[in-house]
Design a protein around this nucleic acid. Structure first.
Lengths: 225, 225
DNA sequence: CCTAGGCTTCAGGTTTCCTTCAGATTCAGG
DNA sequence: CCTGAATCTGAAGGAAACCTGAAGCCTAGG
């Protein structure tokens, strides 16, 4: 689950990013409008937390653009307490939820979670693919009704595969999605081999209709048929 | 046992909060409708003590919303002596008990206790999970029919685990539930290690079906099977 | 003022996970 | 069939999370 936080106050930004990472999300921050724009153009986020009182131009502009480009990301806008107009306009422009400053981190988390559910998996918190069942609230994974204990990276990887099933994912995009922007694209991504291996061992059973195929020179493809 | 007091008179509010904390509850206050709403959205309370004569909109609105959202919290409404209409409407809307102002703190305590019994554990004041038995009236805990003397934090922790069994609770949410909103999220929560350790030592016996598992990087999970 | 108990901090040791790496295996193209 | 590149695998090092006992601090009750 990948989140972009757009916030100019660096102190606050750092706190929130740390908190969200602690909660198991992959989280990045953009201090201004321009940076946010660039990042969104390049990367794929599940949720964008957007402070609409940015210094370099209204955040509402960014929101409008997002919706015009039919971005699939959920948008949670944040603003000062009494900016009711912003709230109304934001929701009208297609924001998915609204939060007033100051807010508790736990509240942010609650909203992010509910947004995840609504956006990503049609409101359900359970994904069932034949003999694999994932509960996205408790982070539990069951294989043939037996619980599989995945590590954090394995769990993120599985979720990334599931939401991109039948699509070929190359190592670069996997690395980018699981490790965010603190990864050097010049690196080799050999460690992905290991994660794939471990994930396969844990969630793929003999004779299952689910599979993680390797496509030589291209990447991996999760299929469920 | 966590209580939210919704009351605009700050003097009264402070008195009651102090009293309830004295009695061993984890208690927070909300001075108005909006704050209460936010807190309820974030945190999980066992009981909400609700003054229905709030300045910013009727408390009955809040009550109605609570019941619509199938909140599990018990609701104890408070209002001026002769507002009989409020009483009737309140109970009709699903409040669990009613108290007239002014009231004695001891009376409030009695109602809260009886509400605890009725709401939280299906009317029983005893929770039995194999070899662990908790009496929520006397705050006694028995392990294999021998009384275990828990400290306040340990007791609250156990109750929090019991009412969220099979769910992963991370350190942040535990801290928030046990220490309320006067905790800094930037802190490390190392002291939780100690409380977990002590609780395990006191309530988990060898070969018991109850367990407090640690989930690396995620939190803790109480299981009873 | 003194004491006891509970809460928190701290240092060290242990466990778990992530990453690296070397050797083995598979693959595509010639 | 040969060759180099990509992928797989198990093992091992290092980092982060977790556990533990002991020591300090703080508060309530005497």
């Amino acid at each position: 689950m990948k989140i972009l936080l757009v916030e100019d106050n660096t102190d606050l930004s750092e706190t929130v990013v740390n908190y969200l990472r602690q909660e198991g999300y992959i989280c990045e921050a953009a201090p201004d409008f321009e940076t946010a724009d660039e990042k969104i153009a390049i990367y794929q986020y599940d949720i964008i937390v957007l402070d609409i009182t940015l210094p370099d131009g209204s955040g509402l502009e960014l929101l409008k653009r997002l919706k015009q480009n039919r971005s699939e990301a959920g948008v949670l806008i944040v603003s000062a307490k009494n900016a009711l107009d912003d709230k109304l306009e934001g929701l009208h422009l297609g924001a998915d939820d609204y939060l007033t400053k100051p807010f508790h981190l736990a509240e942010l988390n609650a909203r992010v979670q509910s947004l995840m559910r609504r956006k990503r998996f049609n409101g359900s918190n359970e994904i069932i693919l034949h003999d694999i069942r994932v509960n996205t609230t408790t982070n539990q994974v069951f294989v043939k009704d037996e619980e599989a204990t995945l590590t954090r990276k394995e769990y993120e990887l599985l979720l990334y595969f599931i939401s991109n099933r039948n699509r070929i994912l190359n190592k670069e995009s996997i690395a980018e999605h699981l490790w965010g922007d603190n990864i050097d694209m010049a690196d080799s991504f050999d460690f992905i081999y290991t994660h794939i291996k471990n994930l396969r061992k844990k969630v793929l059973t003999k004779g299952s209709r689910n599979n993680i195929k390797s496509v030589y020179g291209m990447g991996y493809k999760f299929t469920s048929a």
